[in-house]
Design a protein around this nucleic acid. Structure first.
Lengths: 195, 195
DNA sequence: CCGGTTTGTTGAACTAGAGTCAACTGGAGC
DNA sequence: GCTCCAGTTGACTCTAGTTCAACAAACCGG
């Protein structure tokens, strides 16, 4: 199905290929509508080989999530030469770009895949924590007090929801979306102080 | 396992019982860790009977989601005798209560269950739309312009994220959480106007 | 009471697909 | 050309979702 000649690949290449292919299938169809055989077939490879690289279908799925999550975090991490006061807006724009290019994959990531599954939840939570860390890094670093953390957590929820909706429909200009994002973050942070 | 004597039930009773039991199991374990046999056993009933009431495991799962979603929407719908200007706060409090009593079920609902599944996504989206409708109902009714809709959609994401976190950890007082919620909604709505 | 009918219920049989494993093979190095 | 090993296979097992023909508790007319 894939490349003409089915050749032997090195561990890393094959693993990467299967991850990539698996990730693609999981974004078009639901978890239990994608069979191991499908993935194997689309790679032109036997089912057994998949189990040589991943201990189970679930692990493979989690690995594809991790791949996506890693890309997201990388995308929104500010480049060191970005001035402090522009990092937030840059990050928001990077987030919108990422979601725009990858909206199905992103929502399947953030929607958490397989029902409430512990491992999946872990990936999602860690990703969110990483984003929170990036936000407060930009604001000066250090562990924020609980109120601020809660505000940041909520704001990420806001971005996940509004970002996906915006990227899919583009009903308002990008500046408006960015303005909403910054205003909401500010409101959340300010109002989280137990005055 | 359940009631002592296994008696015949009417269609509605049995269906309700299976829904209830299924819902409970799906909130403690992941979708594919709950088997049809588990559900049947916990109802003291044969596996075949489940298929008399629900066409497939998936449909049963979706039905439990719908049940939860319905309860949520019902909970946060303002009572007609609540004055207009108190409805938002009342709704937020109802939401926090609902999530607090039912946080696992709620997140498994909003996280979307089985990977990105069309039917599940439909339930989730409809629930969110219902909530948006309730919000704007409180603000005067009618279909909001797209910017406001986006703001509301984002705010629901905020509430889902912050609400679950708050309900689980209770690290800040309820008033603070409610204040954050109202401030964030206001900020979102205001900043959504393409000035 | 009793046969018939309706309707809830069962259990065995079927099947798809996840996971296992011993055997096979392309190709790099000698 | 031979050896050896990492990469690969395909046939097998087994769990769990799904189907279905038969069974039984309640209801009813006689």
């Amino acid at each position: 199905m894939a490349g003409a000649t089915r050749s032997r690949l090195g561990q890393d290449e094959r693993r990467a290929q299967l991850l990539e292919l698996g990730g693609r299938l999981f974004t078009i169809r639901a978890y239990d509508e994608v069979s191991i055989d499908d993935i194997a077939a689309s790679a032109g490879v036997s089912k057994g080989l998949l189990y040589h690289y991943f201990p189970s279908k679930r692990e493979l799925y989690v690995a594809t999530l991790q791949l996506n999550a890693g890309k997201l975090v990388e995308d929104i991490t500010p480049k060191p030469d970005t001035p402090r006061d522009q990092r937030l807006v840059a990050g928001i724009n990077a987030f919108l770009d990422h979601v725009g290019e990858n909206s199905v994959g992103y929502s399947s990531l953030m929607r958490g895949g397989i029902g409430n599954d512990a491992e999946v939840a872990k990936v999602v939570d860690e990703t969110r924590d990483a984003i929170i860390a990036i936000i407060f890094e930009g604001f000066g670093g250090g562990d924020p007090p609980v109120g601020l953390r809660l505000a940041a957590r909520g704001w990420i929820g806001f971005m996940e929801a509004a970002g996906v909706e915006w990227a899919e429909k583009r009903e308002v200009p990008r500046e408006t979306m960015v303005a909403m994002a910054t205003q909401v973050l500010q409101a959340a942070l300010v109002s989280s102080r137990p005055s």
